[in-house]
């Protein structure tokens, strides 16, 4: 990542780590025991955050939380409207019937991916409820009525030429950038 005036660090790794730990405490506070809950990372970019949150919860409670990854490609609303969509694996080795699901993605933008992910989730069972957790919420870019239950930071930029990149170096170190598409 070179130095460029169009690039801005939204969250350095220390702040991102604090947010992940906050997420873990919020989940424990809201869910109590997570034995009836499951953490699901949305492919492709939500899975690492989801795993980090799962590990943070386990560190605090000693509890192993059910974990899966979900791909929403086949449920998108823009197939045959351009763009490249090669699916990644969905791996949910348990029924989600009556579970409390925490769906995790890195950035909430238009909300369309989450809409598709909720559809994709239903083929694994009927959860008792689904919550949404994101690291970055781009609050003014929504195209469907979806909002997060847990969020790291909000960005109020209306500039569609900017995008957010969540950059994982390894499981423990993450930096969040605001970048200019032209940079």
């Amino acid at each position: 990542m070179n130095n460029n005036s169009a690039q801005k660090i939204l969250l350095n790794s220390q702040k991102a780590d604090l947010i992940i730990r906050r997420f873990a405490f919020e989940l424990i506070e809201n869910h109590g025991s997570l034995s009836n809950s499951a953490i699901i990372g949305l492919q492709p970019r939500g899975t690492e955050l989801a795993l980090a949150v799962k590990n943070a919860v386990s560190e605090i409670t000693g509890e192993d939380v059910k974990f899966g990854t979900l791909d929403h490609t086949f449920y998108r609303d823009d197939i045959s409207r351009g763009g490249i969509h090669i699916p990644k694996p969905s791996k949910i080795d348990f029924s989600t019937e009556n579970l409390r699901i925490i769906l995790i993605d890195d950035v909430l933008y238009t909300g369309r991916s989450i809409r598709a992910a909720i559809d994709a989730m239903m083929r694994f069972g009927r959860p008792s409820d689904i919550e949404l957790m994101v690291m970055v919420d781009r609050i003014h870019q929504r195209e469907v009525p979806i909002k997060p239950d847990y969020k790291g930071v909000s960005i109020d930029s209306r500039n569609t030429e900017q995008f957010v990149k969540v950059d994982w170096k390894d499981q423990s170190e993450v930096t969040v950038w605001l970048l200019d598409k032209k940079s």
């Binding site: 791909d71 090669i86 699916p87 694996p89 969905s90």
Partner: peptide
């Protein structure tokens, strides 16, 4: 790319709900 996509459909075909709305239009 075809194989990678087919792997996901293979997994889907094992699920109780085997249908997706991907090509609904």
């Amino acid at each position: 790319s075809i194989f990678q996509t087919a792997e996901n459909f293979s997994e889907l075909l094992q699920a109780p709900v085997k249908k997706t709305p991907a090509l609904r239009d």
